[in-house]
Amino acid sequence: MSVRTATAAAPSALVDEFAEIELVSETTNPWTPSRKASSSTWTAGAGMRGRRHHPLLRIRGSLEIRWRVALSVAGLAVIVVGWFVAASRAGSGASLLPSPMAVAKAIAHLWSNHTFVGDLWASSQRILLGYSISVGLGSIFGIAIGTFVSVESFFEAQIGFLRYIPASALTPVFLLWFGIGESPKVWLIVVGTVFFNVLMIADAARAVPRELLHASYTLGGGRRTTLRRVILRHSLPGIVDAARVNLAAAWLMLVVAEMLAADKGLAYQIVRAQRFRAVDTMFALLLVFGAIGLASDLFLRWLRNATSPWARP
């Protein structure tokens, strides 16, 4: 199928498979307002009215699945090919920009290295703990803020101020407060993400339709029942969405923490690789971050649809 725009000036577009059916129904539609009167040069029945664009270029158009897959593959291919080309032309700079092959080898090497799993686990553990606390606090405060105007008023100014303090700037403070163990890293992840989670979850709670609250009340539901069985239930997909979107910020905070003070972890290994000028290992670790991110994104999407199939778009 050619990427072509079907316009009134290109009658051959009529034969495009995607345009045919709709166009026929439209030309036989007696209710189409007539423009003939205003353009007297037209011969009745010879022209075409309106424009019809190729699905690829339509605003909010729907695409067949084969097109969508093809475009995704093409998008990835651009990056890989671009990388190959850049690496092959780097010449003397090859030590700064490793080829994809070299990085693939470095990944294989990492995987066979017994410390890698330990690093992966150390980082994942910090994320799991810190981010769970963040989503938990975010849910409690977010739901409360989105539900009670009193709570919202109390926290609005605080959060408005606190969330603009870059959490990464707190790293030295946290190292002083919590020492160099696990807790400063975990609390940095909490502080760096909890405000985003609170605000997004509060929005989800505010989005619960008033009609549902009224339905609950007039069916005998008290405040507690309504909170748990209507507001929380309705906000659940929003909570998972918030967790999915803000997870990237959690990894950002983890990297900041591990780069400053750690003896194991993925970001710590990047800093270590820098010392040995092992750029291929650094790239390999970056790809590991990307893969973990993609996997958790897919998992949380699945979780959202599994727990709230009714909210599927």
Partner: peptide, 8 residues
């Protein structure tokens, strides 16, 4: 008037 059923 509408939209008051629990969607889940």
């Amino acid at each position: 008037q509408g939209y008051s059923l629990f969607p889940w």
